[in-house]
Write a protein that binds this DNA or RNA. Structure first.
Lengths: 172, 172
DNA sequence: GTCTATATTCTGATAGAC
DNA sequence: GTCTATCAGAATATAGAC
């Protein structure tokens, strides 16, 4: 049977949730503890400092991303469609982790910046290998990130994915 | 002769610079005042609260965006090339203001969110009018935002713009 | 493992001198 | 218009009880 989500994981979930939903400024230790339903002391037992909390979140993001890249590489519909579909924020755990990682990277955290750059490189590699066309791979990569940027800013457009697909289908 | 940049404008510049370069968490009143070379009391004479500082920054962004959209509409190279070129962060005042606006919008500031949505709508309208093709206009819009997202995250790729142009040129 | 209480530093804001 | 001094509350972190 499935294990309960550990307090540690619930704290990381709460941290990501606050960053995504309210911005990194709102993701204080107090707020994270309250969101996870534990006291601040309880939080600090699992993560000795805020930096440790950030580092653990980034580490978990890297693990999730590695699984995502494998799924993308082996997707029945192909890496391009898989990538574009998952670039629309569906509220999955990985979506939340990725948006949180991008926000923390914007705060100039070195670990988060490195992780985001590595994830992006991995996506590009799969697209490029599959398409055999670096320019098209780069374009698809940017479109996906445009979709992400919007969804994460809350100004997404539900029709955008379909429109992008239609345009890509026109290419010889 | 050109007037000196007013203290008020230098404070707004400093605020944007800190948001873009170090993240919104680092853009405290203390840091903004120091960056602009005035005391905190001096800052608070011009902006009675942090909220007033944010609102003034967003208002200035709207004015800059209105000028940008006009330039885009009348660009000799056409709106698409103009838009994509200016989506690469060149360090211009408008680039800085736009990235700062996006960051503040991510902190869920209602004024910044509305401004970013309005600016995006204006860009889309110009692209759509020029192209007469909503799907293509949406795709170009997303590519530009992908370019912005990267540059603002500091992981941009200098070759990306050329690659995108090449792909768009393949479309019938 | 989790809590409460406390210490310390940071942040936004006010008052009043110059 | 700009500064210094000061304050209240928030944010990170520690200590020790349970």
């Amino acid at each position: 049977m499935a294990e309960e989500r550990s307090t540690r994981d619930r704290l990381l979930d709460a941290f990501e949730q606050l960053i995504v939903g309210a911005g990194s400024r709102a993701a204080t230790l107090d707020a994270v503890a309250a969101e996870a339903g534990v006291s601040k002391g309880g939080l600090l037992y699992h993560f000795r400092s805020k930096e440790a909390l950030v580092d653990a979140m980034v580490e978990r993001l890297r693990e999730q991303a590695a699984r995502d890249v494998e799924a993308m590489r082996n997707a029945p519909e192909g890496p391009v469609d898989f990538y574009l579909e998952t670039s629309v924020d569906t509220g999955s755990d990985f979506d939340r982790a990725l948006i949180a990682g991008a926000r923390i990277a914007q705060d100039q955290d070195p670990g988060a910046r490195a992780a985001m750059a590595d994830i992006r490189d991995a996506w590009f590699s799969v697209l490029d290998e599959h398409l055999g066309d670096a320019a098209l791979a780069r374009t698809v990569l940017l479109i996906g990130e445009g979709l992400y940027f919007h969804d994460s800013a809350g100004i997404g457009d539900a029709a955008a994915l379909g429109q992008v697909r239609e345009v890509l289908a026109r290419l010889p």
